[in-house]
Design a protein around this nucleic acid. Sequence first.
DNA 1: CACTGTTGTATACTGTACATGTACAGAGTA
DNA 2: TACTCTGTACATGTACAGTATACAACAGTG
Lengths: 128, 128
Amino acid sequence: MTLRVDLKSSIPVYRQIVDGLRILLVNRELHPGDPMPPVRRLALDLGVHFNTVAEAYRTLAEEGWLEIGRRSGARVVARAMPNRVDPQSGEIFQRRLQELVAEQQSRGVTRGKIARDLRRIADTLEGT
Amino acid sequence: MTLRVDLKSSIPVYRQIVDGLRILLVNRELHPGDPMPPVRRLALDLGVHFNTVAEAYRTLAEEGWLEIGRRSGARVVARAMPNRVDPQSGEIFQRRLQELVAEQQSRGVTRGKIARDLRRIADTLEGT
DNA sequence: CACTGTTGTATACTGTACATGTACAGAGTA
DNA sequence: TACTCTGTACATGTACAGTATACAACAGTG
């Protein structure tokens, strides 16, 4: 499983795990039915406490991605995409994009390179 | 000055201020030479403590966007874009983009709409 | 059935960072 | 000098992330 965690980041580790796993889930690199590694195992791989991983699993379970059983462990679920979309989320997304772009510009990255990066992601989204 | 803060967000307020101001600075909606509002005034507008704004000003001063004097207040600076770009920042940017995109998909936003949003930002970047 | 091992859960504790309250220091101006 | 407006410094309260530890549920095995 391709997943990393940066302990020095200001972003909480459990949310880094959620974000990383969500990418794999959305892209179907983790298939419905697949068992997730036990919290203790993944925690060992990442170098964090297993309760931190457990918190991430619970968050993803609330989002409908995982199903967690006592002994059976966590398992990827066949998840229906929500058909009710929060109208606010679009604006927040735009805003976050602007913030990220401004940060890159502030670091000296050219507008052209940033635009290319954005289009690359857009292409992979529609290339499937 | 168009700037908002969400006190309920998990993102620290002082960083929300930094991110919001950086957008205005990068887009030259705040011009070099312009005086920034005093920390107490901006704090009042946003509904936070003035030390929180002061922290944001200091962060932007470290980035080279602002110049702060005791009595003169904070002022926008004519800033040369750094010609040394941290090579890691590109990968981190890509990663963050993927995380944001996955989050939108998880909320049920279609790939098409996300791709359009990304291209829109890319276009405005190169349209200048 | 009892035992054992593996799973996630619950709760208390500790450290750190955010936001604030308050006092201060520097720099203009009357 | 006295006054006022600026940002700064530092102590305090609080919330939360991460951990330690004990526990509960369940499957397999003798």
